[in-house]
């Protein structure tokens, strides 16, 4: 053990990393940690948005009303919103993980012009949600949309993509896949590069086919990235809001009104905005997301064994 006082350069080594993560820490505190705990506090109150002095502590009553009071409008909003959010997660997560994986696998072969395609696939990721929905509304419009006009050439009747089920869900998943391919594809591409070529060569000698290679070499090798992508995609899908808000306006008949849309409306609109109920809904949604993430980690870890 050295008892020498710390040299300046050593001190710098200790402070420097801090200087790098400090900006993120500040943002993380302000926009995540503080609202997170503040939200839990609000969920225990009958909260008044404009006059917090009038708030009244009600314990878990907000949670009781949402979860069990079946003749309450909030109960119906919550369960309908949760069902719609779940529907989106179930429909969206598989294509959101599989499509980028397949594209990354193709790019990994490095065919001619793969760099151009990599850029093209990544491009939609840079669009804002408003732009995304604007573009897709013009593609999916019933009477003037490119898709229906194209299908009409093949003799298919106009399909009301945004105002009839099950087309509305299909439309929302389609635009989400197109929008988010980029981020996951980049991670998959990097992961696939890391898989040692020798493993594939060895499996060739053993006579393994393509599917076997994927199951026993590729997937176990990229297990960590797969866990990360699946969890982050699931969490992002639970937070779906912009696509149904702007493209279907929650319709038809509130079948795509996801939980976050109800939460926002309850918290901010009407003659009596009710942040207590809204944050209670958000807390429950957060708990559900945590539980599902843990289950996912366990399941995918088993995949590699």
């Amino acid at each position: 053990m050295s008892t020498k006082p710390l040299a300046i350069s050593t001190l710098g080594k200790r402070i420097l990393p801090g200087a790098f993560f400090l900006p993120h820490l500040i943002v993380f505190l302000i926009f995540f940690i503080i609202p997170f705990f503040y939200g839990i506090v609000i969920s225990l109150y009958d909260w008044h948005l404009f006059n917090p002095d009038l708030r009244e502590f009600v314990g878990l009553d907000n949670f009781r009303r949402i979860l069990f009071e079946s003749d309450s409008i909030f109960y119906r909003y919550f369960w309908n919103g949760l069902r719609n959010t779940f529907t989106f997660v179930v429909l969206a997560v598989p294509p959101l993980v599989i499509t980028p994986f397949l594209l990354a696998s193709l790019l990994n072969v490095e065919p001619k012009g793969y760099k151009v395609f990599r850029a093209i696939f990544f491009l939609p990721h840079l669009f804002s949600i408003a732009t995304l929905v604007l573009i897709w509304r013009w593609v999916l419009n019933t009477n003037v949309g490119i898709l229906n006009l194209t299908l009409a050439q093949l003799g298919v009747d106009y399909i009301p993509w945004l105002s009839r089920q099950p087309f509305a869900w299909f439309a929302l998943v389609l635009m989400t896949v197109w929008w988010t391919i980029g981020a996951n594809m980049v991670i998959f591409t990097a992961a696939l590069k890391e898989v040692p070529e020798s493993l594939y060569e060895a499996s060739d000698l053993e006579g393994a086919n393509t599917l076997q290679k994927m199951r026993f070499i590729t997937l176990p090798s990229i297990r960590n990235q797969l866990i990360y992508i699946t969890i982050m995609t699931t969490i992002a899908s639970f937070n779906v809001f912009g696509q149904p808000q702007l493209a279907t306006q929650g319709g038809p008949e509130q079948s795509t009104t996801v939980l976050l849309m109800y939460i926002r409306n309850i918290a901010f609109t009407g003659a009596r905005p009710n942040p207590g109920i809204a944050t209670a809904m958000a807390v429950i949604l957060g708990l559900i997301m945590m539980i599902i993430s843990v289950i996912q980690v366990k399941l995918i870890k088993r995949l590699g064994d």
Binding site: N141, T142, N143, Y158, L162
Partner: peptide
């Protein structure tokens, strides 16, 4: 026509 969307 039916199911006309916004701005269509």
């Amino acid at each position: 026509p039916g199911s006309v969307n916004v701005d269509e």
